[in-house]
C-alpha cells in the first residue's frame, strides 16, 4: 500500500504534476503532517555545518540550508506553524535514528557514500570535503608516512575510519587506532598530545582548530586521501521528500543564495568565538553548485 503510494507520487512528480496535497502524501511528509512536527538531526561539533553556539543551540551552514527546506515543507504541507524539534546525533547513531523514525532529516556533515545509500537516502551535495590530517605543529608529523607506530585518532563511525584502515594497508605502515566519540572528542586527543594526528574532513579540522585555545599550534597536513560530498540525509526510497529537499537546495544554489550562506559561514567571523575560517569555495564545490548531484563516493 505504502509502496504503491510512493510509486504513484514518484510518477506524478516525474511528469511534473504537483501533487494535489493530502491524498498523495507518503513517507516522511505524511509522517510530518500527521505528527504536526518535523525532527531535525543535528551535530554538536561539526563546525561550521552543524554545531552548538554559546547557548547550546544548533547553528551552522547546514542548519541554515535545512531551515530553507523546513520552510519548503511548511508551504508544501500548508502548515505554517509546523513544530520543529531538534535531536543531537553522533556519527554512530545517526543512521539507526533515521531508520527508526527518531529524526526526519539530518543536517550535519554526513558523507554521501554508496555503502550508506544501502541504508539511507541523500540530497544533492552542498559541500565537498577532502580527507586530510590535523596535527600539532610540534609533533613533527607532515605526511602519512610519519605516522608509523604513532597513535592516530578518527571519529567512530565516519568514513575516514575506513579510509585510514585502507591506507594503513596500502602504505604498510602500522598506526595505533584511537576513536573519538565526536569530532571535538577526537580533536581533544590531538590537542592534549594523546594522538599524533586526527584523520578527518579538512574543513571540520579547520573549524576545530579555529575554535581552539591556540589555533597557531595546529596545522592541516598531508595529501587529500579522498574527496567526499556532504548531503542532507533522509530515509531511503522516500522520493517525494527527497524531491522537495533537492528542489529547495538546487534552487538556493542556482539563485546564489547558497553561495551567500557559504560566505556567511566560511568567510566571516562565526559564533561562538567570532573566528573567521577563511575557507574559500573550492573549484569542485563551485562545479557542484553549478550542476548539483547526489552521486555518492565509492
Amino acid at each position: 500500500m505504502r509502496k504503491s503510494l510512493t510509486v504513484l507520487a514518484l510518477c506524478l512528480s516525474t511528469i511534473g504534476l504537483s501533487a494535489p496535497a493530502q491524498a498523495q502524501l507518503s513517507g516522511t511528509l505524511q509522517k510530518i503532517k500527521e505528527a504536526g512536527a518535523i525532527t531535525v538531526g543535528h551535530r554538536e561539533s561539526s563546525v561550521p555545518f552543524s554545531y552548538l553556539d554559546a547557548n547550546q543551540k544548533p547553528i551552522g551552514y547546514a542548519m541554515d540550508l535545512c531551515a530553507k527546506v523546513i520552510d519548503a515543507v511548511k508551504s508544501e504541507l500548508k502548515m505554517p506553524n509546523l513544530e520543529v524539534k531538534y535531536q543531537a546525533v553522533t556519527s554512530q547513531n545517526r543512521i539507526p535514528l533515521m531508520q527508526n523514525g527518531t529524526i526526519d532529516m539530518e543536517c550535519g556533515s554526513t558523507t554521501n557514500s554508496i555503502a550508506r545509500q544501502q541504508q539511507v537516502g541523500f540530497s544533492v551535495a552542498y559541500f565537498i570535503t577532502s580527507v586530510r590530517m590535523g596535527v600539532r605543529k610540534d609533533s613533527g608529523v607532515k605526511d602519512i608516512g610519519d605516522l608509523n607506530g604513532k597513535p592516530v585518532v578518527t571519529t567512530t563511525g565516519t568514513t575516514s575510519d575506513a579510509l585510514i584502515k585502507q591506507n594503513e594497508k596500502g602504505k604498510a605502515i602500522d598506526v595505533k587506532n584511537l576513536y573519538g566519540k565526536d569530532h571535538a572528542d577526537s580533536f581533544l586527543m590531538v590537542e592534549s598530545s594523546r594522538a599524533a594526528a586526527f584523520v578527518m574532513d579538512d574543513i571540520l579540522i579547520a573549524g576545530l582548530i579555529a575554535n581552539s585555545k591556540t589555533p597557531d599550534a595546529f596545522a592541516i597536513v598531508g595529501p587529500s586521501l579522498r574527496d567526499e560530498p556532504y548531503g542532507v540525509m533522509l530515509r531511503k526510497d522516500d522520493a517525494p521528500f527527497k524531491a522537495l529537499i533537492d528542489k529547495t537546495l538546487t534552487g538556493l544554489m542556482k539563485s546564489g543564495e547558497a553561495e551567500k550562506l557559504y560566505t556567511k559561514w566560511f568567510m566571516n567571523p562565526i559564533p561562538p568565538r567570532n573566528v573567521n575560517l577563511n575557507f574559500p569555495m573550492s573549484p569542485v564545490l563551485k562545479a557542484a553548485f553549478a550542476t548539483p548531484t547526489d552521486k555518492g563516493v565509492e
Binding site: 556519527s91 554512530q92 547513531n93 543512521i95 539507526p96 531508520q99 527508526n100 541504508q119 567512530t156 563511525g157 584511537l178 576513536y179
Partner: peptide, 20 residues
C-alpha cells in the same frame, strides 16, 4: 576511554550495518 571492548564493538557494528 578508548577500550575496544564488547560494547564498543556493539556500537561500531550498529553504525556499519544498522542491523540493530
Amino acid at each position: 576511554v578508548g577500550i575496544l571492548e564488547l560494547y564498543f564493538q556493539y556500537k561500531q557494528i550498529i553504525e556499519k550495518t544498522s542491523q540493530v
